[in-house]
Design a protein around this nucleic acid. Structure first.
Lengths: 352, 352
DNA sequence: CTGAAAGCGCTAACAG
DNA sequence: CTGTTAGCGCTTTCAG
């Protein structure tokens, strides 16, 4: 049962500092008065307040947060658990979350949850023992995970789920993949027949990947074509997957004049680069649209059309919802939807 | 003095959960025994341990971290304060720091310190009251800041400084700008005369910018040329600054066949893009080297030569040093140096 | 091996 | 307006 204990049993290190006791003595008041002077200044006389202020100053007193936190059961910490901490996508979510948290007087505790925690590993979004220190948890769930769900159910702090509908009655903030995907597909289908359209997605188990693929499927059918299996593939959100797909499709099978709806910008760029390496011209031989609205998509040549995702809004709204819940546990559960939209660039221009 | 108090006075929300008391009663032992069973299993008999285990299970007991932390004065939290949380550079530092922290059983508390905290704002790296919750602080300091220094001096937790030598006797982990910069400059000076070389830097007050500029200056002199004022400029780490510089230098003043050592990859790419927009060819008309080893530098055309910075090592080493200090406060102070090195791509090739 | 007891440093009634 | 008192939930001597 060691896992319940402190992660690193080690000698205490914090040096001895002035306590509220010391301040009280120095100011010749009770500790209660010191506490009030600090936290509820309006409850003490100005003279007393001043004496306390001076004592605090002289002693360099700072309230021990650990003790405060034990009393109030509130740490001012918010857990933010993401699948990964890396890359522009998550980085911006974090930025939004951090900014909003700061604004509201909280600090975020970031955690990159291992995507599939092994048997031994803790689920719960990767904040090991620190989970017990947060006032609330915002967690992004990108694929089904029973163990995680279980942890979340037993959580004893407010919870906000990002980007997934888990059916546990928590607040939810999610990016609606649909409108942007729909726009993207209609744009492609305007100039490319449905049988020449391809979806090159991320991991199949990803909720996002599925949502995007679903729109792809729907729009193709709407255009009168039931997608062949080779038109929809899944693997991972990486440039190398895009390159590989392009190599096999454009290089080996020699397809031309096709249109690709890529699972994200990395994949799109990978596809484009490989196409270019094969001597093809984008968009003439290959039209492509990515997803995420990454900076990179706007920087490569040709610019990559992409579906904008309001990343920092996502972080911001998640934190806002979480804080609302923390401060007002009995408010109605909210479900916040952030829309996506198509951002057109050269990569999805006409075939000629 | 309100700023010393809890940031958000709000009602308690944490629901009532089983305490060690409850477990003790259920297992018919004392709370001390429960504590031992959890933290020092070898100190209790197997039968007792089992009884306690069962009680814990049945009650869904989890030790209250707040109380643990108050007793042990150790939270398992590490503060990591960076100038910004955004962009690949910081993102990777974070990733390294997070991975290492996790490995060592700690959690990091990220903070994007406002670069120049206003008068009212807290210095101390932006972790407001949360500063009191960390076992140690790793802070990246990019420019001189007296107020910050002061805060750091009065810190009552272990401190590791990143990327700056502040002269307070803390551990330091720093990226040595020199070797990479030196290589870069020698590479440029091989084919471009010193009077046609330019340094386009970030903020002048940045330690890094200064270090890089210094090498630029030294190498030009070494090549027999004392840099003119127009050869060295500072502003900010952004693409738009690069574009602007290029516009004025290449567009307005019409310079050609020059070589630029840019303060970072963003600047380098900005310069390159503007040059291309002006119809120039890189590296024929303009050779350029960036800094940071960003992914982006390898993705644009032509590929941008850059000075590699071991970003995740930086985060990793900082955390390692910090944890070492936390666990062993009396170890010798360490100063860790991480070297940089040149990564050649097309952008700094010959003028023709 | 186990229990009793003493706090960690602070906040929050409750009386004055 | 201020002091007294009671904990918050846990860890840790110190005796058995």
């Amino acid at each position: 049962m060691g896992e319940l204990g402190d992660p690193t049993p080690a000698p205490r290190v914090r040096k001895r500092v002035a306590s509220i006791q010391d301040v009280a003595e120095r100011a010749s008041v009770s500790i209660a008065t010191v506490s009030r002077a600090v936290n509820k200044p309006h409850l003490v006389s100005v003279e007393t307040a001043e004496r306390v202020r001076i004592a605090i100053e002289e002693l360099g007193y700072r309230p021990n947060r650990f003790a405060q936190v034990l009393m109030t059961q509130r740490s001012g910490l918010l857990g933010v658990a993401l699948p990964d901490i890396h890359g522009e996508f998550y980085s911006e979510i974090l930025r939004g979350a951090d900014a909003e948290a700061r604004r509201l007087g909280f600090q975020i505790l970031v955690s990159a949850s291992p995507a599939h925690p092994g048997e031994g590993e803790e689920a719960g979004g990767g904040l090991g023992p620190a989970l017990g220190l947060v006032d609330g948890l915002a967690i992004m769930v990108t694929e089904p995970d029973e163990r995680l769900l279980d942890t979340l159910r037993n959580l004893d702090v407010p919870l906000v789920v990002l980007d997934a509908h888990l059916g546990l009655g928590s607040d939810v903030v999610f990016v609606d993949q649909e409108p942007g995907s729909r726009e993207a597909m209609r744009h492609l289908l305007e100039l490319t027949p449905p049988q020449d359209c391809f979806f090159v997605g991320g991991p199949q188990s990803n909720f996002d990947a599925q949502a995007r693929a679903k729109v792809f499927d729907e729009e193709l059918r709407r255009a009168g074509h039931a997608p062949r299996p080779d038109q929809v593939t899944f693997r991972e959100y990486s440039m190398s997957w895009g390159e590989r797909w392009a190599h096999e499709t454009l290089g080996v099978r020699g397809l031309r004049r096709i249109a690709v709806f890529a699972g994200n910008d990395d994949i799109a760029i990978g596809i484009m680069r490989e196409a270019q390496a094969l001597g093809l011209i984008v968009p003439r031989d290959l039209r492509v649209i990515g997803f995420d609205g990454s900076t990179l998509a706007g920087l490569v040549r040709p610019g990559v059309s992409t579906v904008r995702v309001p990343r920092d809004d996502l972080g911001r709204c998640a934190v806002r919802a979480l804080v609302a819940r923390v401060q007002n546990p009995d408010d109605d559960v909210v479900s916040l939807r952030l829309p996506t939209s198509l951002l057109l660039r050269e990569s999805s221009g006409p075939h000629e």
